[in-house]
Design a protein around this nucleic acid. Structure first.
Lengths: 154, 154
DNA sequence: GTCCATGCAAAGTATTTGCAGCATC
DNA sequence: GATGCTGCAAATACTTTGCATGGAC
């Protein structure tokens, strides 16, 4: 179990959340979240379950879902629905609001940030009399990587 | 059945698509698509099914799905996944690429367009060596409408 | 007449929930 | 020791598919 401190802030926040809600820290939650953080990418419940099982832990898929939903409730993790019918989760970093660029051939997801777009969004919301709380921007295209698998080519 | 010509272009394109693929025009498809176009909003398969049934037509939910998928294949309609676990469909107007502003309280969806953002997106994709084919931008916030129902207030 | 399309029901996915035993506080 | 948590299986929600019949070309 790597615990070099990179995610200490995450654990601190999560522990705070647990005690506030009078919930318990458990072996399973520790494991699931640890592997989730190690994965360090967009991951869905089933993938995470496979990883945990692959490491020899007998943890039910339901517990994976329950833990991910707990993380979502805590606000530490965001749930996204890129493809139809499947949700992926990722650590929500409140400081850097990044967006996604998705290759339609190989499915790889790249991240980027752009302040200008954020500014314009605020203006648009203002004009339409909205108070903006969040946004989601996804660009779809074809990456030029050599190892692009053309997964979805017809 | 209103047929004032507003969607003639749509039917022309769809008929072309059908004959290209050697598929057939049917009563059911006509009905489903007609009600879909009349709805003129983001709609999901179940809602559309209710509308069609409400008008006294005995059409199976499976046929609704099949027809919507057909429209998606034709490129005339886009499928979106706003909330988890439910897809909505809307006419894809290739000339005006609009985005969405969603009220987190009442769930109402507003549309907007912004050229500047589109420009920036192209630049970003270029920098990351992507050829951009599509995008999706969703803003979340609170609308200030009097009839905002605060549906999701905790 | 040949295929494709339809309705129905069954199967498929992704996710949630009920319950009895177990772990944490 | 009380209460929340877990694994399992069943339930749920959305969507797709198999099959026999009917309709379009």
């Amino acid at each position: 179990m790597t615990n070099v401190g990179e995610f200490d802030w995450f654990w601190a926040e999560f522990d705070k959340f647990l005690s506030q809600k009078q919930l318990k820290q458990t072996q399973q939650r520790k494991l699931i979240i640890d592997y989730f953080l190690q994965a360090n990418r967009h991951i869905d419940a089933d993938e995470l379950h496979e990883i945990v099982k692959g490491k020899g832990h007998n943890i039910g898929l339901a517990t994976i879902y329950r833990t991910l939903n707990l993380l979502k409730d805590s606000g530490l993790v965001e749930q996204r629905t890129f493809a139809e019918g499947r949700s992926v989760f990722e650590v929500s970093n409140p400081n850097s609001h990044h967006d996604h660029l998705i290759c339609q051939d190989c499915g790889k997801i790249f991240e980027f940030e752009n302040e200008k777009i954020e500014e314009i969004q605020l203006k648009i919301a203002e004009q339409l009399n909205f108070s903006l709380t969040d946004h989601r921007l996804e660009l779809f295209g074809k990456c030029q990587r050599k190892d692009c698998t053309y997964r979805n080519k017809v």
